[in-house]
Simulated scan of single mutants.
Amino acid sequence: MRSLASFLILSAFLLIPAITQAQQVTFGGIRADTKAPVEITADKLNVNQESGKAVFSGNVLVGQGTMRLKAEQVEVQYAKGDRTKISQLVATGGVTLVSETEAAEAQQAVYDVPAGTVVLTGNVLLTQGENVMSGNWLNVDLRTGSGQMDGRVRTILKPGTK
């Protein structure tokens, strides 16, 4: 009986790292109308006609519907063969992604506009009300509000009170 209890305790400790490696999360608030116009404001803009890239720098704010993304620099990459359609936005330097009810911070974010996904990397911190989750990588589907946190995931959950 004692060996069974030891086995169960050991099994529980072995499962904890597996559970904390990847965590599915729901984002009720980090959703965006991916068809809405993307508005970008910044202190400076550099455009390279040959490469088809535009780099916004200094207090960059990207807005789409109710979603806001803030960073020190955002590179706009256009679709190959069509410089009127945005392919990706690559944000670096103190990246913050916010919605009405949630906020995420990271070192970098890549917004794949046609796919409607944002991948945040580097010391990701997600706040949902009083709940906090951190990890190395966060992938958010803006259309569905679903996401996955990966890489040494740590969660602090505040139980509801009556």
Score class of each variant (00 low, 15 high):
N139V: 11
R2F: 12
A32W: 00
V90Y: 00
L157P: 14
S11T: 10
V55A: 14
V113R: 01
T84A: 13
K158E: 01
G116F: 00
Q108K: 08
A42H: 05
A54I: 07
K53Q: 11
I86V: 12
G122V: 09
A42Y: 00
A71T: 06
Q77T: 09
V98I: 11
Q64L: 00
T127F: 02
K70S: 15
K80C: 13
G94P: 13
N48L: 10
P37A: 08
V25E: 11
G122L: 05
I9K: 06
K85L: 05
K162Q: 09
G28P: 09
D141C: 15
G65M: 07
Q107I: 13
L15H: 05
Q49N: 12
Q88G: 12
N139R: 10
E105P: 15
L45E: 10
V47A: 14
T84C: 11
V140G: 04
V98Q: 06
S6T: 05
I16M: 09
A91H: 04
L4T: 11
N136G: 14
V98L: 10
A115Y: 04
P159F: 01
L138Q: 11
G122C: 04
L120F: 01
T26I: 14
G63K: 10
A36M: 08
V113G: 06
N48W: 00
G160D: 10
R31S: 09
P159A: 13
Q64K: 01
V90A: 02
V62Y: 00
L69D: 03
N139L: 15
K80S: 13
Q64C: 05
K80G: 15
T155I: 13
V153A: 07
V76M: 05
L69M: 04
